[in-house]
Design a protein around this nucleic acid. Sequence first.
DNA 1: GCAAAAGTGTTATCGCTACACCCATGT
DNA 2: ACATGGGTGTAGCGATAACACTTTTGC
Lengths: 249, 249
Amino acid sequence: MAMSLKQKPVFTGSNTCEIRPMEVYKDHGKVLVAVDCIIFGFDSKALKLLLFKRKVAPLKGHWSLIGAFINNELSLHKAAEKILFETTGLNNIFLEELQTYSKVDRDPGARVISVAFYSLIRLNELDLESVEKYDAHWFDFDQIPPLILDHGQMVQDAILKLRTKAIYNPVVFELLPHEFTIPQLQLIYECIHQKKLDNRNFRKKILAFNFLVKSDKKDKSGSKKGAFLYKFDKEKFKLFVAKGHRFEL
Amino acid sequence: MAMSLKQKPVFTGSNTCEIRPMEVYKDHGKVLVAVDCIIFGFDSKALKLLLFKRKVAPLKGHWSLIGAFINNELSLHKAAEKILFETTGLNNIFLEELQTYSKVDRDPGARVISVAFYSLIRLNELDLESVEKYDAHWFDFDQIPPLILDHGQMVQDAILKLRTKAIYNPVVFELLPHEFTIPQLQLIYECIHQKKLDNRNFRKKILAFNFLVKSDKKDKSGSKKGAFLYKFDKEKFKLFVAKGHRFEL
DNA sequence: GCAAAAGTGTTATCGCTACACCCATGT
DNA sequence: ACATGGGTGTAGCGATAACACTTTTGC
């Protein structure tokens, strides 16, 4: 064996590399693995989180993240994609692994290791039928109800991750419609960083990056005057990065 | 059931929350879970990676990360800590989850999901006996040999993570002795970012943060003149962050 | 006509970059 | 005495932050 540890039998078996028939594997850490999804959205006023109400006992009526056990047919990422598709009707959305949750007693029913993923979706593209079928509801960040197990912790971690990620990555565009206004964009950043920004400086800075493309259409939903619509140009952003620049906001 | 999906049996069971006796859980994604550790060090010249040579068939003689299957007694983080302690003799070291690796066929022997952790250690504190016992060797970043399974990918991902993390987090101090010189510190950043830095500007910037504490001792290992030793003051750093400042280098 | 949000420029300050020489010491 | 790496200051430039008024339009 590559590893012959002296202590508990935990690691006595082998390291991961052991390539052997199933008999060798079977004594080791066989556990259940689940995927849980933290789903973020933005409704032009506030950042929201999609939560699900359990319809059956036990814990009927409690709020939780959506999730599922995984089997042998899909990678974790694919499994998360599938869950998201089924609950939101959306494909090709921003989806990234957050981290694992593996406290031994986190699920009283069994040893379950859960891998949390967080995703950013465009509320305007959401399939309402799918959402209703799962008895899901959107919650403001500051009004998140108690969640089962360690889902509350997952949500806190995901929010923190989103905050820090948004500083150096233009992920917020995943939360906005493909066409959006500068004031909308600014509002997202204000929600995420929880402070007011100067609108003149914000405009200047974001437009100086040169990856926003102005259209000649206006969105009048936010004001009487109406605001011009812009698109985020991914290619221009990649070029920007390729030139050695760093995005930061 | 909270989820009643129509497709494959993958998710038909339940979401993670299901709290039930083992019978309910047993049909679902039972897989093996392993932990693999990417161990970084710095030898005052270059960034290094600790790799392990398999002593037994199959794949005898091949290089791999150190890892182990997990059982029901430890969280993944604790499991990784244990592996690190056994192979390096070190406790309380920087250890952070990288990500999961879960491609269905990544390990031909069984369905194994691996959770990679990366750690930063101080080479001067390393227990050489432990390391030798495991037939481990340090490799330069640009001389990493082929690794088994997807360990090569893990290493690449870890290096990238370390690079991006080091820009906004003072993690490099985890790689240096508790007392170090400014030139040593600069060298680490040069290794990580792979470019030369101006020593006057570097000094100015890092000292301006005000969380390095100068001692009156000199380290003469690097030059005849000798360079003053500094300490990283974690408390001062926390204060710096608490005041709303951002570290960036 | 007024309320409500969109849009626009300038100035002062700060931080970053670029750059070259003297210092201390071991050999 | 010389080779080696350690340590220091300044000036110009570019980026950021602070700040207030005009425009458009639905009601």
